[in-house]
Design a protein around this nucleic acid. Sequence first.
DNA 1: TATAACTATTTACACTGTACATTGTTTTCA
DNA 2: TGAAAACAATGTACAGTGTAAATAGTTATA
Lengths: 258, 258
Amino acid sequence: MSQEFAGKGDPRKLIELMWGKSRAPRRGPKPKASLEDIVAAAISIADSEGIEAVSTRNVAEAVGISPMSFYTHVPSKAELHDLMLDQVTAESAARPDDWPTMNWRQRMTFIAEDAWHFYLRHPWIVQFQTHRPILGPNTMASYEVALSALEGLGLDEIEMDLSVTALHNYVLGAVRDAARAQTVLEATGMTDDEWWPSIEPFLADVDFSPYPLASHVGRVAGETYGLGDPERAFRFGLERFLDGMAMLIERKKQQHVT
Amino acid sequence: MSQEFAGKGDPRKLIELMWGKSRAPRRGPKPKASLEDIVAAAISIADSEGIEAVSTRNVAEAVGISPMSFYTHVPSKAELHDLMLDQVTAESAARPDDWPTMNWRQRMTFIAEDAWHFYLRHPWIVQFQTHRPILGPNTMASYEVALSALEGLGLDEIEMDLSVTALHNYVLGAVRDAARAQTVLEATGMTDDEWWPSIEPFLADVDFSPYPLASHVGRVAGETYGLGDPERAFRFGLERFLDGMAMLIERKKQQHVT
DNA sequence: TATAACTATTTACACTGTACATTGTTTTCA
DNA sequence: TGAAAACAATGTACAGTGTAAATAGTTATA
């Protein structure tokens, strides 16, 4: 079922693996597979078959080693997860070409949308827990890009960190339902809306009078976008958040003037 | 690792279970355990030992039936998860006493904080995926409460639905890191900040020059709240979102006047 | 050349979800 | 009253999981 963050893997070992220290061994046979191979194979399996298919045996087989040889390269499965996360984050570690011409709102919108699509490309990320903050090079680079969206606006360091974190948290929460719907669609070939009519009759004789607002709003929303439109909800909340950010930035600018 | 949303369990069966139809069987022996017992036992195990301890065997043992008897009551483990989710949501299905005296911002703040604490009480919720939207009675009641925070402000049904969804999504994303830190603390007795010094030396000779902003901001933030302060980040983002909501509500009011 | 250092493998164990076949219990109807 | 239907509970079994432990094989260094 789920995630082990137990006190097992030495966090220092993970740091070493992520930053590529502890390499170039002097003796012993040539490794049949590299760490990069293993992490890449795990990501590939997760993308195509889902995170539950990422077993130590499957990963080992994918890179052509025996099941237990996996542990020669990675301390445990928990560390594999962290390595997968940092590795895949490389996709969000670069600024787009027109970055210099964008204002802060365009930049934050870009970052949010980029993260949105990133999570939909790798929906398994949404569903696993790490044991410690990931301090890998790609995670760092991605944080750098996000911070640079807010440079020179008069925000202090704390406000910049909190803004970037809050934006990222929001996307993570909002993408969850989209990722779920997408994964289920891929697995079953059935969208949420296709499934709805088959259970509607069962709800027909439920008494909804205790939920007057919910049934009214739910009905109108249902006529507009069926069981839900995760992307629309995402964009709506993003605009509210950015409006709030604009207020903060404006306030800080006025403080700076006086 | 994670969740099965496969096309297995008949969704109609789940609806029946959640709304308490399909009860009062005419014949056969008295069940040794009720559905309520089973779901309650599963929630209790998840709360105290984590979601990974919620195995069909453990749940069966907790209610005093043999492993396979579990399947007499619940079609599969996926349905158990959905039932757990709706059941536990009963905690957020009531308005506080002073609700009538609160304005919309106080109400939304209450809902966000209530959800925040709810997730920290049941951190396992954050880490599992459902296969379909949960349409249970308690989920419905909780949605009703959230909507009633925005009644009579001039928002249309769609805006109300999107606002409630966005707020909920935000809390879900923001609580993730707090839940992780809490779970790791319980499992290992070590906070994120206690762990940090032990790996700091390993990062000492990493070249951080590619991340100038990140290392500067990270250093100031680190001096202020160590490796991170999830609750502070949550409150910061919440205020920004609510500021944005205030702008929307104000705009709608002015539209209504003209 | 011997040894240390390293990779890879085999075997094993306790655990998971659940398919399938069977037994036991209670109610209903002929 | 007895047979049948409906349901609950169980035992056995299988393919999968993470990983501990012991062992064998390979290479660079002393």
